[in-house]
């Protein structure tokens, strides 16, 4: 406690130099990057996000272009990562293989964090009967394995991969509700809220100015965790044959297609597996570092 208060003024001074709402971004990013694991996470996530944007421009081949003469070719100067069972360039397909899954899961995780956070925080604040009933429902929903439900809905509802967005965000939002509610309850019990009450502030002021900044941190980290879960779920669906559909390059699908040729052409599966895994590891490392950095930042800025 003492240590935190001593470093407080220094950091608070540096932080207040930035403009307006985003004044926390700089110190938080600095703390994330100061740890090797946070650095690795930030680099991996940035790399993959950049790739989504620039891959269509820099990919050396057309991802659907087949070449019957170059089937399952080992890596060479012409095809740096070799070719797959239809003679398509593995490098180009791997570079573009995250596009669909990343866009869908990013959108779905944002929706999940917003609706889950809003409902969860409200439940935590309202309490009472409504809260009790809703939490019962939440617990019951959590008893259904997520992937199974996705399978059930995706396969019978149709509508392609974009139909996954509402389903993913609904189910993941339910776990956010739980987190948001718990966070709201624990923040509501903290001393500075009591202090604000005693000072006679409006409850609107207390909710938006005193509580939300604290909840933001928890929800931000939860959003990153949901994103990582969704990437895992989406690629599993693709792997099982229920996600992205064939000519689309997609990591899960590419790994599943390459399994038949594992002995003769391991590269066709290795690269998409590496890209997929590094993205999910990156998100987790980043989320972990983000949580710690936000905590450190808040402790530093807390008035001594």
């Amino acid at each position: 406690m003492r240590v935190a208060t001593q470093t407080g003024p220094v950091n608070a001074g540096a932080a207040s130099a930035g403009p307006g709402r985003f004044r926390r971004v700089k110190p938080v990013m600095r703390t994330i990057l100061s740890r090797p694991s946070g650095m690795a996470g930030a680099v991996l996530v940035t790399f993959h996000l950049l790739l989504v944007i620039i891959a269509p421009v820099i990919a050396p081949y057309d991802v659907t272009q087949q070449d019957a003469d170059r089937i399952l070719e080992a890596p060479s100067m012409a095809h740096w990562m070799g070719t797959d069972s239809l003679g398509r360039d593995v490098l180009s397909r791997t570079m573009l293989g995250g596009q669909v899954s990343i866009l869908i899961t990013l959108a779905a995780s944002l929706i999940a964090a917003v609706w889950g956070g809003a409902v969860g925080v409200s439940l935590g604040l309202v309490g009472g009967r409504i809260d009790e009933v809703c939490m019962r429902l939440v617990d019951a929903f959590l008893a259904i394995p997520g992937l199974l439900f996705l399978l059930l809905i995706v396969s019978f509802a149709g509508g392609g991969v974009f139909a996954l967005i509402p389903t993913l965000s609904f189910f993941n939002g339910i776990s956010v509700v739980r987190i948001g509610r718990g966070a709201a309850q624990s923040v509501a019990a903290r001393d500075f809220i009591t202090a604000a009450r005693v000072r006679g502030h409006h409850s609107r002021f207390i909710i938006f100015r005193e509580m939300l900044p604290n909840l933001q941190d928890i929800l931000l980290v939860e959003w990153a965790m949901r994103w990582s879960w969704m990437m895992l779920a989406f690629s599993s669906l693709s792997f099982l044959g229920f996600g992205a559909s064939p000519p689309t390059p997609d990591w899960g699908l590419m790994i599943s297609d390459s399994r038949e040729f594992l002995t003769v052409a391991p590269w066709a599966g290795f690269w998409p597996a590496l890209f997929l895994s590094t993205l999910i590891i990156g998100i987790n490392l980043f989320a972990d570092a983000l949580g710690k950095a936000l905590y450190v930042d808040r402790e530093n800025r807390a008035p001594g």
Binding site: S236, I255, R259, L262, G269, A273, L276, S277, I281
Partner: peptide, 22 residues
């Protein structure tokens, strides 16, 4: 354990097949 939690099961399984079965 972080690796085990983040790498998709089907990648781990395929890797094990590659090493121990093939």
């Amino acid at each position: 354990s972080l690796l085990a939690m983040t790498i998709p099961e089907f990648v781990i399984a395929t890797l094990l097949i590659f090493v121990f079965a093939i």
